[in-house]
Each structure stands twice: as structure tokens, then as C-alpha cells.
Design a protein around this nucleic acid. Structure first.
Lengths: 185, 185
DNA sequence: GTCTATATACAGATAGAC
DNA sequence: GTCTATCTGTATATAGAC
């Protein structure tokens, strides 16, 4: 059993991915871990402190996963497929990407937390670009890996956003088809 | 000056595109049009009634714009560029797509309103596919127009979601590059 | 149609005891 | 660290006068 702070963060991340940061309450995560809402303020004085902790933890967990995939001795296609699977897993849990969710709620975030979101998306883009710069990846016209990486990051965030509405995976599947074309050379 | 109902809908749509449906209050739109919140209930008894009206109005306005673009005597590339410009205009007003925003907030919508969101995205996808099925559009490997259309819809929703965080257009620009490749044949 | 007034619920945040 | 108690603000929604 991890410490209370970690339990609170995990409960909060789960809640934000399902129902957003605005819908997240000190009361609800307190109840999840068996304490009172006033005690949550001991760990996170204001809600913006909680936001910062959630983005940070989610980003670190996610970048760890991407690095692990990147270090595997598999093809670029397999790496990108493993990447897409992270989004499919979220859909199966009826979850959106935490940073995608908070991007929609950007009006309720301070500038520091907005920057943290941008850092998350930038890291993802850089990771995808590094994969697309490898061998066995086909160009698409004159589009550079950087541009294709942006396409994939935007495409995956948009796909999970829409697919989550009905729980299907139609748009995520189209992203997979695109990756197949890019990596069949 | 349009009637009160229309004024309320316009104020509400603007508000949702900026700060979400959960953050929308009867009080705020009442204040926007100079009446009291209890009077808003005369037009929209419950918030779900308001949601339905907003999605409906936004969808009709949007599909009118797409049909107008489709009917112009211009190239497929120009049509898709005009399509992307709709998203750029939203970014410039610090707005997200209303249906994209409400898709993120899907947990607070009833099933009827969820279906209305899906109908919106489906219409957009069908429209893009119809453009991509025309002449002067290049295939990308074995990807069919339907799949490419899904790529563009997801990609544009994700691009505006992320770009809105810092007000830039980096990801929307990448979508434009993709369209350029598709339509340069 | 619009108002005042109100019921009910829940939010973030703080004070102070233990 | 966690609690009880409370302050203040805001939300949806309704009753009933005009």
C-alpha cells in the first residue's frame, strides 16, 4: 500500500481521465482513500497544486512507457503499434488522455500548468518523430517526420476524444492504418 | 435583434466553446441577455434541454458552412483549405469546437445528446470523404477516402484541442501540409 | 415571459482541536 | 496528519406573483 499522497494522486488521475478536472472534487478523492476533504488540503493546499501534481505524475508515467517501448528491439511499426495500444487501453477503461482532458479545460488552469501540458504533448511528438526518423519508415511526399509526428499526436488525441463517446475504436483504427502505410516500406 | 431564445443559444454556444458545458450556467447566459436565470428555464427546462439545443444549432450552422464550401466551384484542395480555416478561426477566438468540447465532457450528457455528437462527427467525416473521392486527389498507399477522412477529422479536433493551449497553430499547420500532399497530384 | 424568493446540493478553502 | 465545523460562493431547479 502506497502512501496517502500517492493514493490521492492515483484516485484523482483516474477521476480526471473519466470526468475531467472541473468535476474533480477534494471530497471525492478524500472519500476514495478514506479521509476527509480538509485533510487533502494538507497535501495539496489549492486545487492548482493538485493539478500540477497530476500532470507531472501522468507525464512521468507516460514518458516512462514510451521510453520502454523505444528501447525494445522491435520494428518501428511494432513500436508505433504499442504506442497506439496505450490509447486503446484508455478507451477500454472509458478514459480520455489526462492531458487531453485538461487541454479542453485550459481556461481553468494557470499558466504554469498550461505549460506542463504543452511539455507533455511535445515529449510525445518528439518520441514519435524519433521513431519515424529510423529505417523502414516511408516518407509521405515531402512531409518530414516532425510533421508526420504532429499528425499522429493530434490524430490520436482527436481519435480517442471522439471514439470515447460511443466506446468504439473506429477512429483509432484509422490511425493504425496510417501507421501501417508509413511503415510498410 | 433576434428573439431571446436565439440570443440565449448564441451566448451559450460561445460560452461552451470557451469554457465547456460544465462551466456553463443558467445565470451567466441569463445575464448575457439581460434576464434572470429562472427565466431561462422557461425556454430550457433542464440543462439537458439546453445541451440538445446547442448541439443541434451548432451542427446545423456547421453543416450549412460545409455545404456552402462544397458547392463552390473550386478545387478539392481549396475546399479542404476552407474547411481547415473554420478551425483556425475558432483558435483565433480562443474557442474549441463545441462538439469536441462536449465530447470531452461526455460523462455529463445523456445518451440522446451523445448520439447527437456522433452525428455531428459523422456528417463532417462524410463531407471530407466526398471531397477526397473527387478528381485531383491522390491516394496514400491503400488508404481509402473514408479512412483518410477519419484521419482528418480526428487530426483537426486533436490539433485545435492542443493548439488552443498556447494559441498557436503548429498542429493545424501540419494538417494543412497533409492536405497539400493529398491534393497536389 | 419575467420576476423574487427559496430549496437543495456541492464546491474550495480555512480555523483550530487533537 | 486527520478531524469537526464552518464560511462563502455557486450551481440547478421550482413555486408562485405579476
Amino acid at each position: 500500500m502506497s502512501d496517502k499522497r500517492t493514493q490521492l494522486e492515483n484516485a484523482a488521475i483516474d477521476s480526471v481521465q473519466r470526468s475531467g478536472f472541473n468535476n474533480l472534487s477534494f471530497r471525492s478523492i478524500a472519500s476514495d482513500v478514506g479521509i476527509k476533504s480538509s485533510s487533502v488540503h494538507y497535501y495539496f493546499p489549492e486545487k492548482s497544486d493538485l493539478a500540477a501534481a497530476l500532470i507531472e505524475k501522468y507525464s512521468v508515467d507516460f514518458s516512462d512507457k514510451l521510453r520502454a517501448i523505444g528501447n525494445r528491439n522491435i520494428s518501428p511499426k511494432s513500436k508505433l503499434d504499442a504506442f497506439v495500444k496505450l490509447f486503446e487501453d484508455a478507451i477500454d477503461d472509458e478514459k480520455f488522455c489526462l492531458c487531453g482532458m485538461m487541454a479542453a479545460e485550459v481556461y481553468s488552469l494557470n499558466s504554469s500548468n498550461r505549460q506542463a501540458l504543452l511539455d507533455y504533448f511535445q515529449f510525445m511528438e518528439d518520441w514519435v518523430a524519433s521513431i519515424l526518423e529510423g529505417d523502414n519508415v516511408s516518407a509521405f511526399g515531402t512531409m518530414k517526420p516532425r510533421v508526420l509526428a504532429r499528425m499522429l499526436v493530434s490524430g490520436l488525441e482527436g481519435a480517442i476524444l471522439i471514439d470515447r463517446v460511443d466506446g468504439r475504436r473506429d477512429r483509432l483504427k484509422s490511425q493504425r492504418e496510417f501507421i501501417r502505410e508509413l511503415t510498410k516500406a
